[in-house]
Simulated scan of single mutants.
Amino acid sequence: MEKFISFVVVLGFAAAMLLQCAAAQTVHVVGDSSGWVVPQGGAATYQTWAANNNFVVGDILMFNFVTEQHDVVQVPKESFDSCTSANPIGETITTGPTNITLSDAGNHYYICTIGQHCQLGQKLAITVSGSPGAAAPSTPMQPDSSSSGVFASFLVSLLSILAGFLF
Score class of each variant (00 low, 15 high):
T139W: 08
M141P: 02
Q116D: 15
N53E: 11
A125L: 06
N99F: 12
A22E: 10
G149P: 05
C83N: 04
G133E: 09
D59S: 01
A16M: 11
P140R: 04
A24H: 09
D144Y: 04
V156C: 08
G149M: 09
N53H: 15
A23P: 05
A135S: 15
P132H: 00
A134S: 10
H108F: 05
D104V: 06
N107F: 12
G58W: 01
A125D: 08
F154L: 10
H117E: 01
N99E: 15
G90R: 09
I5Y: 15
A51V: 09
M141W: 10
T101R: 15
A43M: 01
D104N: 01
T26E: 11
N99G: 12
N99L: 11
M17L: 14
P39F: 05
M1A: 12
S145N: 14
G133I: 07
E68G: 06
A24L: 05
F154Y: 05
K3G: 01
V73T: 07
C21F: 10
F4H: 14
I100C: 06
A16R: 11
F13D: 03
P97L: 08
L159C: 01
L124P: 03
I93R: 15
Y46L: 10
F55I: 03
L61I: 09
Q20P: 00
M62S: 09
L162T: 01
S153C: 12
G133D: 02
S138P: 00
G35Y: 01
A16F: 08
